[in-house]
Design a protein around this nucleic acid. Sequence first.
DNA 1: TCAAATACTAAACAACTGTTCAGCAAATAT
DNA 2: ATATTTGCTGAACAGTTGTTTAGTATTTGA
Lengths: 202, 202
Amino acid sequence: MRSAETTREQLLKIAVEMFAENGFAGTSLRSIAKRAGVSPALLIHHFGTKEALIKEAISETLGAWVAGEKAAMLDDESKRLQNWRAFMEKGTTPLNFFRQVLLAGGEYSQRLFDAAVSESEVLLDQMKQAGRLRDMSDKQTTALIMTVSGLGSVLLMSQIEKSMGGPISSDHVASRLMNSNNEMLRDGVFIPAGKTKKKAGN
Amino acid sequence: MRSAETTREQLLKIAVEMFAENGFAGTSLRSIAKRAGVSPALLIHHFGTKEALIKEAISETLGAWVAGEKAAMLDDESKRLQNWRAFMEKGTTPLNFFRQVLLAGGEYSQRLFDAAVSESEVLLDQMKQAGRLRDMSDKQTTALIMTVSGLGSVLLMSQIEKSMGGPISSDHVASRLMNSNNEMLRDGVFIPAGKTKKKAGN
DNA sequence: TCAAATACTAAACAACTGTTCAGCAAATAT
DNA sequence: ATATTTGCTGAACAGTTGTTTAGTATTTGA
């Protein structure tokens, strides 16, 4: 048992990568074991069950997001941004893993979604306090729609990239998306019927 | 061979329902055959291959959307709406099937996505002609973001329903979503920094 | 030093997958 | 009426899945 904890950690790391790439149902224990150069039985030995391995992979990767302590870390805007950056800097795997959990449905998926909606609600509250929120009839639902739009771009990332002809992380694509998104959030898109053409109130 | 065509059609219909519910990988030929009260070999007999069955199910259900004749039927706004209504009135199956194809990735998924973006672009063009489009720097990207938001709500439907405590088709939930969405598209959400609180230009 | 716990494997398990094959019965064509 | 095609089935195939079991080293604790 030279490097016991290390082997376990390596297995978990490889599992997370493969789950992120091919989903949970699409990743067999055998394929994980093969890539790790290890017997399939070792995975069972360390984690007991594929289901348990999945749960541990989720806690490991999405930890706080899934633990239900939503509000705790979101209060501070700088912290939230810092969190996102730390999450993203690890490459594409965490985001793809996030995507798979969201798509898998069930308990964890819902927690992720609810946590994301909470984040949006906090953002709207902060903007309101700063006097930068437009009048709206239903702040909760607005937060939900903003969340759906954001998560949608995660779920549809590969389609977006093909459609825009480059990786989302590229400066060109990223800036186009951010610019348009900011415009939409600032000015809206449509002018109410019955009014003549006119600029938004900026 | 009493009702040959009828049997084939029934099998296809049941397959579509089960694919819509459990996805393509998650639906075995045996489970389809069982629910149809028929032998698994009959599915092979009629369709040749699971892959072929999937393709036929897709053409059958999403036909024009996937055929690449995007622009053809979208020109007219009333036609577009009419299409959507016809598609929706068949219950939840078509929408769930749409969702599964979009999630499955690959060729069909991309075509569906591109077709949806095209629809949004046409909509923006029509609004512009009617003088109801706000100034924007990148109409294409705006159309793409609107599409992502719309498709996101399809992909995340079950999460949205749990979060809002009722089916999307219910009057309560549907009207909240539509109201907030319309507000966002009309007025935007945020007021630019450096301005004091102020209503949108409506 | 000796015993016990741990890390690990090879082989096999039962269940499931898509697909094939031989054959039967019923409808159609000649 | 005979021959042929068609609809359909049961059984089996080869491959994959998660998991079990028996066993072998290797490391740790007393």
